[in-house]
Design a protein around this nucleic acid. Structure first.
Length: 564
DNA sequence: CTGGGGAAGGGGCCC
DNA sequence: GGGGCCCCTTCCCCA
């Protein structure tokens, strides 16, 4: 990547969203630019319809309908500059105030005693993440509310498909299980949905909840009283809302008898999920608003917090991040304290470290430092055998293998050896080996001689002893029965063993290869639990062990199977 | 196709 | 817990 390319540069401002929200809240408190007043039993709450539409499915449907039928807008000037008052007596004033606070602060602060009112209000207004959070706390199950109409469901599904298509080249596997789970949660049945308010609320499409048409600009309201609440849940609500906080209430913590939902609820592009080995697919990342060009404000989601929060109820004020942290975007587990911000920059594209010489930017300081060596000419890794010096330690490592002639990475098919593991992988992914593999396919049947009884082939990728080489010659590509299999026997040191043995009369081949899949079904292979020596401890770093490579390829094979 | 250089990202260790 | 530093792995690009 040379500097000064004409590619687009994205400069993220992670604080932007929260600052905007903060200022909107200040405006709301000051009554500035408020174009909507919510009332509940005498309490008045000036607010902004754009904010309410962003937070509440109910208002989104409401104002969307207004825009669609602008002239007939009961509230007067749906998309225009008129003011409107929406009477929501069905929502308790306290709950309404809490929900408004939530809308502007991404934090829901309520008393436990008011939880049910808030839940009801959130249901009425279609604030799903609050609904979920309250349910978590109250131990209720979901399924009472479904804001997504069939039509929207189709549209949402269409959008999802488009997003998937955009990421078709993704290397990561789609976690189908999770997709199913997420989608199923969106497809909850729409059971009984009591009628909101006595004012009209036919179910879809929603109509205006009969706002009191006073048309006056509301003044900032002070705290409302909290009278009793009547029971008139609204029927309406269309759901275009998918990601923003559907599950987002999980990070709740109790505060002084109240409940506090931290900002993840609103800001996190994806609610923290329970720890899972499965990674979220990039498709889902996009579905969750990451890849759409926006720069979400990321909130770290420590695993411990998630686990506790998922359990709901919550005890302490706020839990500190533990060492393994889960990326709220890709769900990847990041090990090591302080590593999550570094990882997050891979999502935001933020490159705060700029080379003062050439202007190239880096996501990490250490990368910049290495880059600077190019300008300073520093090559801190000298070869002890020759004058060569290198920028990177791994360059020296590769170079040393040239001196030694070591090519520890050998193709199990054609036995071509490589000095670098990635070159071997590239070789394997290419087609250069296919011919060999075809030729190497052993004959089957009684006449097949896959090896001598008790023959062992061991040793490193290089340095076969003469008789080992002879054995290899006598047993051409026996390992080709499974491309991954042979690597077991190619350990550099005391690598694994590979044993081909004729059983009894030599009809069956037993491969001490572990539980591999069998690419040639006609041949009976038995994977034996050998406990491959050298898998652990063969190399201190565990890095380039061919046995480990083999294990990796095992995983690849499984993934390939899944793909198929 | 292969060898080599470089970048990006993750993990370990330490302060 | 955050961050620096280092190492490792993987990928891409070029000759």
């Amino acid at each position: 990547m040379s500097p000064g390319e004409d590619g687009l540069i994205g400069i993220p401002f992670p604080e932007h969203s929260s600052e905007i929200l903060f200022r909107l809240n200040a405006q709301r408190r000051a009554g500035l630019l408020c174009d909507l007043t919510l009332t509940s039993r005498g309490a008045r709450y000036p607010t902004h319809r754009s904010v309410m539409a962003a937070v509440s499915l109910y208002f989104r449907g409401l104002f969307g309908a207004e825009e669609g039928a602008e002239a007939g807008g009961e509230a007067g000037g749906g998309g225009g500059g008129g003011f409107s008052v929406c009477q929501l007596d069905c929502v308790a004033p306290d709950a309404l105030g809490a929900l408004l606070e939530f809308a502007y602060t991404a934090t829901l602060t309520i008393r436990s005693s008011g939880m049910r009112d808030v839940l009801r209000g959130a249901q009425l207004l279609g604030i799903q993440c609050v609904v979920d959070a309250c349910r978590d706390i109250l131990g209720e199950t979901a399924g009472e509310v479904e804001w997504e109409t069939g039509e929207e469901r189709v549209q949402a599904e269409r959008e999802r498909r488009v997003e998937r298509g955009m990421k078709k080249g993704s290397r990561r596997k789609i976690d189908r299980r999770r997709v199913t789970k997420v989608e199923s949660s969106h497809h909850q049945p729409l059971p009984h949905r009591p009628n909101i308010n006595t004012h009209q609320h036919p179910s879809t499409p929603p109509t205006h909840p009969s706002p009191v048409q006073d048309g006056a600009h509301s003044h900032p309201s002070t705290r409302p009283p909290s009278p009793e609440q009547d029971e008139h849940p609204p029927t309406t609500g269309q759901n275009g809302e998918r990601k923003q906080g559907r599950d987002a209430g999980r990070g709740s913590t109790a505060v002084n008898g109240g409940v506090h939902w931290p900002q993840e609820c609103l800001l996190a592009p994806h609610p923290p999920l329970p720890l899972s080995d499965d990674r979220l697919s990039e498709d889902e990342e996009e579905m969750q608003g990451v890849g759409n060009g926006g720069v979400p404000s990321f909130t770290s989601a420590p695993l411990v917090e998630q686990e506790v929060a998922t359990g709901a109820g919550g005890g302490g004020r706020k839990r500190k991040s533990q060492t393994p942290q889960q990326c709220p975007v890709c769900q990847k587990i990041i090990h090591g304290a302080g590593k999550l911000p570094r990882h997050m920059r891979t999502h935001t594209g933020e490159k705060p470290f700029e080379c003062s010489t050439c202007g190239v930017r880096f996501t990490r300081n250490d990368k910049l430092k290495i880059h600077m060596r190019k300008h300073t000419g520093e090559r801190p890794y000298p070869c002890p055998h020759c004058p060569a010096r290198f920028l990177h330690s791994y360059d020296l490592k590769n170079h040393l293998s040239l001196h030694s002639g070591a090519r520890p990475f050998e193709c199990p098919l054609c036995h071509k050896a490589f000095a670098r593991e990635d070159h071997l992988q590239r070789h394997r992914k290419g087609l250069s080996c296919l011919e060999v593999r075809t030729r190497a396919r052993p004959r089957r049947g009684p006449g097949a001689d896959h090896g001598e009884e008790g023959r062992r082939v061991r040793g490193g990728g290089r340095g076969y002893s003469p008789d080992q080489l002879e054995n290899l010659a006598l047993q051409p590509h026996a390992s080709a029965f499974h491309p991954r299999a042979g690597m077991v026997g190619l350990g550099d040191g005391a690598g694994g063993q590979m044993l081909f043995q004729k059983e009894a009369d030599g009809e069956q081949a037993i491969a001490l290869l572990g539980p591999h899949r069998l690419p040639y079904p006609g041949l009976l292979w038995r994977g034996l639990e050998l406990g491959v020596r050298g898998v652990e401890g063969e190399e201190a770093g565990g890095g380039h062990s061919p046995a480990l490579q083999h294990a990796r390829w095992e995983e690849e094979a499984e993934e390939d199977e899944e793909d198929e």
